[in-house]
């Protein structure tokens, strides 16, 4: 069937020439990769060697699909505000490449399939936790918090912090305190990371009417909150070694990196500006990546616990 009902106008609507890549962009591949990485760290950090790598890899794929599903649902819900922000205006929905309803359908189908696949490969607890992660990100963060309160990313950060717990549960069938310690690490890291970004994109958030902290409370208060949360993070991070999931290399890395994180947040407070905010934002990504990498390496080297 080569004929379709046309839409008015001579120009070809963008969605008629959309490529699979446009649909893949709905899944926020970069955010997905961070979820995969932290979930993998949760799996590896779990006590005992992974007995079945095949199932672990399949569970990781399921978690990645779940992360992509929640991203597609988030883009569907936020399509109106994404179009108003320079950072997100070129996303597939505001750009006209993917109809919002198709993004919604893709998100729902992927959510169901990812939870189902994880139930088969990683067990029901992991699948339930993945379902909670998707639901929390879409309903609690995107629909309820994001447009209402400057605490959006503080509470909503729980969704981004859950993947290591899901990973841990996928290989052990349990979610004990040490898994939630990994959750706490990402949960405490999220506010300074996102507030640094929101300082850089303040005008965007203003245009879209999103009440991020710098828009509501001002830059000064945001700098103070960043320093405050960084202090809590830097103090809390080494305590992961109290559980048998981290060893001395992790403690050393968390202290050294924590001091640098705190220094950069203090510089932002003393010399405010986009340059300092940008440096802090970039370092925050490196900080989390490095800490989880150390966790992975020390587990492979047998130095944990």
């Amino acid at each position: 069937m080569s004929d379709t009902v046309a839409t008015p106008g001579d120009e070809t609507p963008a969605h008629l020439t959309a490529s699979p890549r446009d649909y893949a962009a709905l899944l926020k591949p970069r955010v997905m990769s961070l979820s995969i990485f932290t979930a993998l760290a949760g799996m590896v950090a779990a006590p005992g060697a992974i007995s079945n790598w095949g199932l672990a890899i399949l569970s990781t794929i399921a978690i990645a699909l779940g992360a992509g599903a929640s991203a597609a649902l988030n883009m569907w819900w936020d399509a109106d505000i994404d179009g108003k922000m320079s950072r997100t205006a070129k996303r597939p929905i505001p750009d006209g490449k993917v109809p919002a309803a198709e993004a919604f359908a893709l998100g729902l189908v992927l959510s169901a399939l990812s939870v189902w696949l994880l139930a088969l490969s990683g067990g029901y607890l992991a699948a339930a936790l993945l379902a909670v992660t998707i639901g929390f990100y879409v309903v609690v963060y995107s629909m309820l918090l994001k447009r209402r309160t400057p605490q959006n990313i503080v509470i909503g950060g729980a969704a981004g912090a859950l993947p290591p717990v899901v990973g841990y549960a996928a290989v052990t069938g349990t979610a004990p305190w040490e898994a939630w310690a990994l959750f706490a690490l990402i949960f405490l890291w999220t506010p300074p990371h996102f507030w640094a970004l929101s300082l850089l994109k303040k005008d965007d958030y203003e245009a879209a009417g999103i009440p991020m902290l710098p828009n509501v409370a001002g830059d000064r208060e945001t700098h103070n909150q960043i320093v405050l949360y960084t202090i809590v993070l830097v103090i809390a991070a080494p305590f992961l070694a109290l559980f048998p999931i981290a060893g001395w290399p992790y403690v050393a890395a968390s202290v050294i990196m924590g001091v640098e994180f705190l220094r950069r947040s203090w510089i932002l407070r003393q010399e405010p500006g986009n340059k300092a905010a940008g440096k802090l934002f970039a370092f925050s990504i490196f900080y989390l990546f490095a800490l989880f990498l150390v966790l992975l390496i020390e587990h492979w080297a047998g130095l944990h616990g």
Binding site: S2, D3, V5, P8, L16, T17, I93, A100, A103
Partner: peptide
């Protein structure tokens, strides 16, 4: 948010042959 195509099923009589790119 994507559900604004309530008139989508209404026949308009207009037909469109796909271009090669489409």
């Amino acid at each position: 948010l994507g559900f604004d195509d309530v008139g989508e099923g209404t026949p308009t009589g207009e037909m469109h042959t796909q271009t090669e790119a489409e």
